[in-house]
Amino acid sequence: MLDLSVCKHFDFRSDEYRTLFDLADVTAFQHPIWQDAMQRYLQHFPEVEERTLQMRCKTSGCLVGVVPLVARKKLGATVLEYANMNLVDYALPTMHRDIKNWIPDPDFLSKRLLETLGAYDVLRIKHMPVSDPAVLRLFPTGHYQKADFSAYLTELGPDYEEWRAANISKSERKHRDKKRRAMMREGDWQMQRLFDADQIRTAMDHLRLFHKDRYKDRPGEDLIQKQVTFDFYLDLACQNAENGFVRIYQFTYDGEIVAVQYGIEHGGRHLMLMMGLDFERVGRYSPGLLMTEDLIAECIRDGIKIFDFTVGDEPYKLKFGTRQLPIYTLWHTHSVLGNVGLTVAGAVNRTPISERLRRWVN
């Protein structure tokens, strides 16, 4: 059986969490480095209360599960959710692969879990890349809702040219080669992986500016324009470029920075988080396609097995031999108010409704 508890300041840098992380089927978003940085990020939001769930073997005390949760009020309801803060593309509980061995009676455990987590109306874990039965054993009355967007990834191999021939059509390869030749005739295109903190800061300033120009007419919020979020990514890169967890690249054209790509890597999987381009300067050369090809070639040279474009249905992702990864949200209600809220949330996704209600869902 499991012993359950909730704490506000779990030590994600501890040896026991690292051991659990190595025994769990999770992603770089559950890595001790990322989770530790997220915990510091949460301190900038006093309206958010940390409720990190710990699961331990009742006999040995061994840590077998951790779910970083936060509680906050939305339209009078208490929403308990994964500590996502719109920065986590893949939200997963960090659970031992054999967690089912510690859940012999899901109904009893569910009651104990609800007592442990404290008062809430709705629990949700959004951006789950799997509909994991083990999680539903914790919440037997919960359910998964498939998102209206997906993630995309491509399997790499040992040879770049072979991968390119197998995953990109001949006509598309010809088109890109033509663009690259035209670009190289008129200037010098260079890619550089960054490790120096000063260079990273300069590149991040460019990334922020490129983002602002590119996304100014798009719906939604460009979080990197918020200083606290920008500092989160900047600090993460400056502290973890050397150890390889963060991989940040700049692309220059005739010595000027025209593109920046920011990703994280773990277990042979590169996750692309942000890309910024100077479309005014190099847009006519399809720079997004060319820089992504250069990045994939670099990943293959480094032995990385998967290039993950993460969430979002941008059409360009389909041009790299990607497969689609469905995304889910786990919902669990714990009150009449929660049931009403979940019904409203469904209506929000189907009809034009006030932005205030839409923010409750998101």
Results as ranks from 00 to 15, higher is better:
164 R>D: 14
164 R>F: 15
165 A>N: 15
165 A>G: 15
166 A>F: 12
168 I>F: 08
169 S>Y: 09
170 K>S: 15
172 E>I: 05
172 E>G: 06
173 R>V: 12
174 K>I: 09
175 H>D: 13
178 K>M: 11
179 K>A: 13
179 K>H: 14
180 R>F: 07
182 A>V: 03
182 A>F: 01
182 A>M: 07
182 A>Q: 12
183 M>Q: 07
184 M>P: 00
185 R>L: 02
186 E>L: 05
188 D>Q: 05
188 D>P: 00
188 D>R: 09
189 W>G: 03
190 Q>P: 00
190 Q>K: 14
190 Q>M: 09
190 Q>Y: 05
190 Q>E: 11
191 M>G: 07
192 Q>R: 14
192 Q>T: 13
195 F>A: 09
195 F>W: 04
196 D>Q: 13
197 A>S: 14
198 D>A: 14
198 D>P: 01
198 D>V: 13
200 I>G: 06
200 I>Q: 03
203 A>E: 06
203 A>I: 11
204 M>S: 04
205 D>P: 08
206 H>I: 04
208 R>I: 06
209 L>P: 00
210 F>E: 01
210 F>H: 06
211 H>L: 09
211 H>S: 11
211 H>W: 02
211 H>G: 09
212 K>Q: 13
213 D>W: 02
214 R>S: 08
214 R>M: 08
214 R>F: 09
215 Y>G: 02
215 Y>L: 12
216 K>N: 07
217 D>Y: 01
218 R>A: 11
219 P>K: 04
219 P>H: 03
219 P>A: 06
220 G>T: 10
220 G>I: 07
222 D>Q: 14
222 D>T: 15
223 L>E: 07
223 L>W: 05
224 I>Y: 00
224 I>Q: 01
225 Q>A: 12
225 Q>H: 12
226 K>L: 15
227 Q>P: 00
227 Q>I: 09
230 F>T: 04
231 D>W: 01
231 D>V: 06
232 F>T: 05
232 F>G: 06
232 F>K: 06
233 Y>S: 02
235 D>N: 10
237 A>M: 02
237 A>L: 02
240 N>Y: 05
242 E>V: 07
242 E>N: 03
242 E>H: 03
242 E>S: 07
244 G>A: 07
244 G>R: 03
244 G>L: 03
246 V>Y: 03
248 I>N: 02
248 I>G: 02
249 Y>A: 09
249 Y>G: 02
251 F>E: 05
255 G>Y: 06
256 E>T: 12
257 I>M: 04
257 I>K: 00
258 V>P: 01
258 V>W: 01
261 Q>W: 00
261 Q>T: 14
